[in-house]
Structures are given as structure tokens and as C-alpha cells.
Amino acid sequence: MTEISRRGLLLVMSSPSGAGKTTLSRRLLAADSNIAMSVSVTTRPPRPGEVNGRDYHFITQDEFARLRDRGDLLEYAEVFGNFYGTPKRPVLEALQAGRDVLFDIDWQGTQQLAQAMPEDLVRIFILPPSAEELRERLIGRAQDSSATVAKRMAKAADEISHWPEYDYIVINDELDLASAEIYAILRAERLRRRRRVGLTQFVRELTKDL
């Protein structure tokens, strides 16, 4: 099989809370070994089952401020009173090595990534099939109080209003279909000419004896 070297890409998946982006992200990571999750830093406390360094790097407000002020974050945002951000160095190293990086971030962070690295960015917005289904998913995951569920539902309309800023829209009605659509997007984006940095040399070698 002919291998063409390429630059990695940044794949963003955003959605209102409860639309399924975390489940879809895990499926994609399990299906493809050349994409890895960007591990964000956050000031919020860990949720049950979360592991420091795997799910997030849990840091203090002061530590977050130092990273931000030094320019060591590609993007950052405040969500429900907590701060989230993406460390810059591991992302840049992955792209140079031809590896892809997956982001589970909101529209604020996506806008910042679009400003910082527009040529590397692929944006997918995940929508629930209905408002009622979204509410049932938030209640069903049993992680949040009823007050928090209500707050997340109230915020969902604002989050969804940013869908036109994304390259692709996936409606997560049936999980297997949504997963297949996301994987198809990733495979197609990997084939974009501008990312296949080895094509020039390949074509030169291909045509020199014609």
C-alpha cells in the first residue's frame, strides 16, 4: 500500500450537554488508532469515574491563569463557572507527526481554534433528535441535580444557535449511524490535498520517468 505522509488535523465535536458527543468521541477513539483525545485542563472538580490526566488535567484557578497568561493554551473558555483550556504544545507535536487530535469543546473554544489554526480544523456539531430526547438523556445519565439539568436545558438553545459555524452537522438519533457519519468525515478530511504534504514528492517521482 502506497503511503503518503500528511499533516494531522484537529477534529472538533461540539454539542449541547446530553447530545451524545462524549459517547461518539469514545467510539471514534476506539475505532481508529491514529486519533487521540486532546486532554484539556479544567478548574472544575472531577466527576465520578474521571481520572486526572486521562479525562482532564484538574488544576487550580491560579494554575489556569498562569497557563493562559503565558500563551500556553490554544483556546480556553468559562462554562458554568469553571474554566477549560487546551494545552498548545502536545497538539502542535501531534500535527507535525501526522497524528490527528480530537476535541470535545464548546463553540467558544472552537472559535478560538478557528482563529489560531484554521487550515488544520474540522468542525462537527452534534444535535439531538428533539428537545425532549435531550432532556431525557440529561436526566438518565444521573450525574446532575434537577436544577443543573434545567440550567443545561436553558443553555442548550444558545449553544445550538452556533451550528452554522461548523463544517458538518450530525443528528445523533441512532448511535451507530451517527458514529459512521463521523468516521466518514474523518476519512474524507484526511485525504484533502493540503494535508497530504508528501504528495508533491510522490508525484515528482511518479512522473520523472514518463
Rank of each mutant, 00 (worst) to 15 (best):
71 G>F: 04
148 T>N: 00
63 E>S: 14
48 P>H: 03
118 P>H: 10
43 T>H: 07
48 P>C: 04
118 P>W: 09
128 P>G: 04
88 K>H: 01
159 E>Q: 15
105 I>P: 02
129 P>H: 13
149 V>D: 14
128 P>C: 13
105 I>F: 03
97 A>P: 11
53 G>R: 03
60 T>R: 02
140 G>L: 03
104 D>P: 00
67 L>F: 14
119 E>V: 01
118 P>M: 08
57 H>W: 13
160 I>A: 13
157 A>S: 11
77 A>N: 14
98 G>T: 07
83 F>Y: 11
82 N>V: 01
126 I>L: 09
68 R>E: 08
112 Q>V: 01
88 K>Q: 04
76 Y>Q: 12
141 R>W: 08
67 L>M: 06
116 A>L: 13
120 D>T: 10
144 D>C: 05
107 W>F: 10
143 Q>F: 06
54 R>K: 02
80 F>L: 06
56 Y>W: 14
129 P>V: 09
139 I>H: 13
146 S>G: 11
63 E>Y: 05
112 Q>T: 01
129 P>Q: 08
76 Y>L: 03
145 S>G: 13
126 I>A: 09
72 D>M: 12
110 T>H: 13
97 A>K: 09
123 R>Y: 13
109 G>S: 03
105 I>Y: 00
142 A>Q: 12
111 Q>L: 14
53 G>C: 05
64 F>M: 09
106 D>H: 07
96 Q>N: 05
109 G>W: 02
47 R>W: 04
157 A>N: 02
48 P>E: 08
126 I>S: 12
147 A>T: 11
160 I>F: 01
